[in-house]
């Protein structure tokens, strides 16, 4: 069974995911064998703070991990519709309103500390939605040595070794 999902566009192909990891590990062979879509609530927010020179507005994109509640800022991205198998999508555990509260707090913290401003910024939600980011599971192997598994961010190419 497949599902229609909004995903962050411009992802890495299977070959690109393999070569990203291979470039760091001479002598190892890598095989990407599965793509998993991870859910986030995305909020595009505008923070307005008062300064000595008038109001200063900053727009900020936040991704809230819908399974752990952890938040990060993100570069602008485009979205695309994708059909994905049910087993390739992780479900959400967080309600959208809770995610928005987390994003507000995270963004306000970032703005105040970077601006060094002891003020409450006004927040406006410009855009919001549930988006999915693709991740590749890549297996690494070397002759007679135990293999390991790497998670490759299908958008940025960043990677992390998996324990499993």
């Amino acid at each position: 069974m497949t599902h229609d999902r909004m995903a962050i566009a411009g992802g890495l192909t299977l070959a690109e995911a393999e070569s990203v990891v291979a470039s760091t590990s001479e002598g190892w062979t890598f095989r990407a064998h599965r793509k998993i879509y991870y859910p986030y609530f995305w909020f595009h927010l505008r923070y307005t703070t008062r300064t000595l020179l008038g109001n200063s507005s900053v727009r900020l994109s936040c991704l809230v991990d819908t399974r752990t509640g952890l938040t990060s800022t993100t570069d602008p991205f485009e979205l695309e519709r994708v059909d994905v198998n049910a087993g390739a999508v992780l479900g959400s555990r967080l309600a959208e309103d809770d995610a928005l509260r987390i994003a507000h707090r995270y963004g306000a913290h970032a703005v105040l500390h970077k601006r060094k401003a002891l003020v409450v910024p006004d927040v406006t939600v410009l855009e919001r939605g549930l988006v999915h980011k693709p991740f590749w599971i890549v297996d690494g192997r070397k002759r007679r040595q135990s293999s390991f598994r790497v998670l490759v961010d299908g958008v940025t190419g960043a990677f992390h070794v998996l324990r499993h």
Binding site: W28, T68, S146, L151, D153, F159, H160, V161, L162
Partner: peptide, 30 residues
């Protein structure tokens, strides 16, 4: 503290910001 039988450069270049996603995906695979 975990460092396994994995190429050193790969670990050095790993992005630990992906830790939460990695943990969730690991539990799915398991």
């Amino acid at each position: 503290a975990r460092v396994g039988p994995i190429p050193e450069r790969l670990i050095a270049m790993s992005d630990f910001a992906l830790e939460p996603e990695a943990t969730e995906i690991e539990s799915l695979l398991r």
